[in-house]
Simulated assay, not measured.
Amino acid sequence: MTTSTQSRVSIPLFTLPIVTERIGPLLGLVKKDELADYREVLWQDYMDNFYGTAHEGKKTIEFAKINFAQ
């Protein structure tokens, strides 16, 4: 349930990739001459993170976010 202090996590799954499949932004949706906000990750790593963080806010999204300040 979404509240004013907590976000809701929705994951529509129409197919279940194999654990070694890489997931990430569609290159066609990243604007020309710009960098993607998210990196490619292994499906298994993403799901391990998703189920390992107890759905605390947006930690699953932050897991794949590219940190430009490095």
Rank of each mutant, 00 (worst) to 15 (best):
G28T: 01
L29K: 05
V41P: 11
F63S: 01
P17I: 15
F14K: 05
E62L: 10
D48Q: 12
E34A: 14
K65E: 14
G28D: 01
T53G: 00
Q44W: 00
E56G: 02
F68I: 06
E56K: 06
W43M: 13
N67Q: 12
K32L: 07
M47E: 08
L35W: 06
R22Q: 13
E34K: 14
G28Q: 01
K32S: 08
T3S: 15
E62Q: 10
N49M: 03
W43H: 12
M1I: 11
D33Q: 07
Y38N: 09
D37S: 14
A54E: 02
S7D: 03
K32V: 09
R39M: 07
I61V: 07
E21F: 14
S7W: 01
E21I: 12
D33I: 03
R22H: 06
Q6P: 04
A69L: 11
P17A: 15
Y38D: 09
M1N: 12
F14G: 02
Q6T: 12
V19T: 11
K31D: 04
L42H: 02
V9S: 13
T5V: 05
E62K: 09
A54R: 01
L16K: 09
I18T: 13
T2D: 07
Y46D: 10
A69K: 11
L29E: 06
K59W: 03
I66R: 13
K59A: 08
S4L: 08
Q6H: 11
V9L: 13
F50M: 15
G28H: 00
I23T: 04
